[in-house]
Amino acid sequence: MNEFITVIEGLTELFQELIQIEQTKLEAAKKNRITHVEDCMNKEQAAILKLRGLERKRELCQEKMGFEGCTFQEILSKTTGSEHDMLKSMFNTLTDHVRLFQDINDSARTMIEVNLHMINKAINNSQNGTTPDNKLWGGQI
């Protein structure tokens, strides 16, 4: 069980890191700082590799504990006492971190899509001989 707890703590820490990366990416996207967005995406790729490793460890730990293929809720239903309380708290924290990461990730993705749309619009305007609307870019073009 200690190894499983360590893995859950590792997942929680990783999602805390991912939340920071996503927040930085969102701010960079808002400010049209493409190189910062790219840096964040590189950090995300490294974190995803780490996530895959932790997920594999989690699966192995669950298998050793007899919880192979079980969800966190199913594991909680099979534990009691202080072990149950500790795992419930850990699972809730991890769930909160995952949700926050997903929310920020969705916002960053939307901001990047908006920026790409504005870039495409500016390209189309320049190809058609019209002038891009500086207000869309905050006067940055």
Score class of each variant (00 low, 15 high):
residue 1 M to W: 12
residue 3 E to L: 06
residue 6 T to S: 13
residue 7 V to W: 02
residue 8 I to A: 05
residue 8 I to L: 09
residue 9 E to K: 13
residue 10 G to A: 05
residue 10 G to I: 03
residue 15 F to C: 00
residue 17 E to M: 10
residue 19 I to Y: 01
residue 19 I to P: 01
residue 20 Q to E: 14
residue 20 Q to N: 08
residue 21 I to L: 07
residue 21 I to T: 11
residue 22 E to H: 07
residue 22 E to I: 01
residue 23 Q to F: 08
residue 24 T to M: 12
residue 24 T to G: 09
residue 28 A to Q: 01
residue 30 K to P: 01
residue 30 K to M: 10
residue 32 N to S: 10
residue 34 I to W: 06
residue 34 I to G: 04
residue 35 T to M: 14
residue 37 V to L: 07
residue 38 E to P: 01
residue 38 E to V: 15
residue 38 E to G: 05
residue 39 D to L: 14
residue 40 C to G: 15
residue 40 C to V: 03
residue 40 C to Y: 06
residue 40 C to F: 06
residue 41 M to F: 03
residue 41 M to S: 14
residue 42 N to I: 03
residue 42 N to F: 01
residue 43 K to R: 13
residue 45 Q to T: 14
residue 46 A to M: 14
residue 47 A to W: 05
residue 47 A to I: 10
residue 47 A to C: 15
residue 49 L to K: 15
residue 51 L to M: 13
residue 53 G to W: 07
residue 54 L to C: 07
residue 54 L to V: 10
residue 55 E to K: 12
residue 55 E to I: 02
residue 56 R to C: 04
residue 56 R to V: 11
residue 57 K to S: 11
residue 57 K to Q: 13
residue 57 K to P: 03
residue 57 K to I: 10
residue 57 K to N: 10
residue 58 R to F: 06
residue 59 E to R: 15
residue 59 E to P: 00
residue 59 E to M: 12
residue 60 L to W: 01
residue 60 L to F: 02
residue 63 E to P: 03
residue 64 K to M: 04
residue 66 G to D: 05
residue 70 C to E: 01
residue 70 C to T: 02
residue 71 T to H: 03
residue 71 T to S: 12
residue 71 T to R: 00
residue 72 F to P: 06
residue 72 F to I: 09
residue 73 Q to Y: 13
residue 77 S to I: 04
residue 78 K to L: 12
residue 80 T to D: 12
residue 80 T to F: 10
residue 82 S to C: 04
residue 82 S to Q: 10
residue 82 S to N: 11
residue 86 M to V: 09
residue 87 L to P: 04
residue 90 M to G: 03
residue 91 F to K: 11
residue 92 N to R: 03
residue 93 T to R: 09
residue 93 T to K: 11
residue 94 L to Y: 10
residue 94 L to D: 07
residue 95 T to W: 01
residue 95 T to H: 04
residue 96 D to A: 13
residue 96 D to T: 04
residue 97 H to V: 11
residue 97 H to I: 01
residue 103 D to Q: 14
residue 103 D to A: 09
residue 103 D to K: 10
residue 107 S to E: 15
residue 109 R to Q: 08
residue 109 R to F: 05
residue 111 M to G: 00
residue 112 I to T: 08
residue 112 I to L: 12
residue 113 E to F: 01
residue 115 N to L: 01
residue 115 N to C: 02
residue 117 H to Y: 09
residue 117 H to N: 12
residue 117 H to L: 13
residue 118 M to C: 06
residue 118 M to D: 07
residue 119 I to A: 15
residue 121 K to P: 00
residue 123 I to T: 05
residue 126 S to L: 14
residue 126 S to D: 03
residue 126 S to C: 11
residue 127 Q to V: 09
residue 128 N to W: 03
residue 128 N to Y: 00
residue 129 G to H: 09
residue 129 G to Q: 06
residue 129 G to R: 02
residue 130 T to E: 15
residue 130 T to C: 04
residue 131 T to L: 08
residue 132 P to W: 08
residue 132 P to M: 03
residue 133 D to M: 03
residue 133 D to N: 15
residue 134 N to D: 11
residue 134 N to W: 01
residue 136 L to G: 00
residue 136 L to D: 09
residue 136 L to M: 09
residue 136 L to R: 04
residue 137 W to C: 02
residue 138 G to E: 06
residue 138 G to M: 00
residue 139 G to E: 08
residue 139 G to Y: 11
residue 139 G to R: 02
residue 141 I to V: 08
